[in-house]
Design a protein around this nucleic acid. Structure first.
Lengths: 183, 183
DNA sequence: GATTGACATGTAAAACTCGACACGTCAACA
DNA sequence: TGTTGACGTGTCGAGTTTTACATGTCAATC
């Protein structure tokens, strides 16, 4: 086991430990789907990244394979050390946190377009946000499964706020551009 | 020049073309700093990634080196083809956009902590947001330099909204946890 | 004249991420 | 009985991103 000095690249690790911690024992397959259905807005990972990371996690003693089911299914459980590790990470306040959002990047690059084009992009953004909001609000209404109950609460709220913020920004910016181009 | 079929990995390319498009001719050094001071919240890139990408961009005819100054400075200018390329990219609506935010990830993993610990993390988040807001509001008040004037407008507004949203979420979630743990 | 710091560009190794390939199981339904 | 689709784990190659290394110029200040 190699000690990692820097925080970079710990995110996937911590996401997996966090999911295992809150949802209880799960397989790589379960975690891949959990990833998609919960923290997908904040972080993405394919199974091709998740399976190797789980093996590393097991090698480092942060998780254990307690049970092997049919179809080669391996059920991972977080260990004491794993819990300690994620707790420390969560309580560590670092100044530099990676943040990448192509949607926001496009918003920043809006001035590269002519006003009419920018307007159309913004209106499309509003439509996308509305569609996403509809999905999130539907999830909010639907009673959550017990396994992810506490987990999804804050995540969903943040997702809703983020999407509404984006929608409002796009709508108001569109209005502003429209006003400016009319005068 | 190889044609890229997928959109993935185009972000850095487009960010550079966008910066060159809005701010006018600039060197790799300028772009590195522009990156930091403008779209850093949406995308990050070190000079070790920017310099090679500029060379590729030049090889592909999307930018040209019009001028070589002292200290080996190379001033890049976006070409017609470069402008066409970013315009097409901006107008292309793809469903899958990469989004990674460690701050949000941590928010999602809050339920791994005990209520008192989560509370402390949330309060720290509020403090960080307040500090960031102070910086952004100061920038808002300060008259912008002509080179990034139009560019920074929307970016700054979105940054302010995002930070306020995060602050409000953290504050209200903290309140909620406090209420729940009191009862 | 020497030192410091901003300017300026680059490369190499390691780690991270994605899409594609690859293999195999089990249950349900036709 | 065959086929389909969800379950389930894994590897590989290519591209992206980071950290560290590497080199040198120019202006200002001591």
């Amino acid at each position: 086991m190699s000690i990692r000095i820097y925080d970079v690249g710990m995110s996937l690790r911590m996401a997996l430990l966090g999911l295992l911690s809150v949802s209880g024992p799960a397989s790589g397959y379960d975690l891949t789907k959990l990833f998609e259905s919960t923290i997908n807005h904040a972080w993405q990972a394919r199974h091709s990244q998740i399976y190797p990371e789980l093996n590393k996690l097991a090698a480092d003693g942060l998780v254990t394979v307690e049970e092997e089911g049919p179809r080669g299914r391996k059920t991972y459980t977080i260990t004491e050390e794993g819990s300690r590790t994620i707790r420390e990470w969560m309580l560590t306040t670092g100044p530099a946190r990676s943040a990448r959002d192509e949607k926001t990047l496009r918003a920043f690059l809006l001035p590269t377009l002519k006003p009419e084009e920018a307007l159309e992009v913004l209106r499309e953004t509003v439509r996308e946000c509305e569609a996403k909001l509809a999905v999130l609000e539907e999830i909010e209404r639907r009673p959550s499964r017990p396994r992810t109950a506490g987990f999804g609460r804050y995540a969903l709220d943040l997702g809703l706020r983020h999407t509404r913020m984006m929608r409002d920004w796009a709508a108001e910016t569109a209005e502003e551009i429209e006003r400016a181009s009319r005068s």
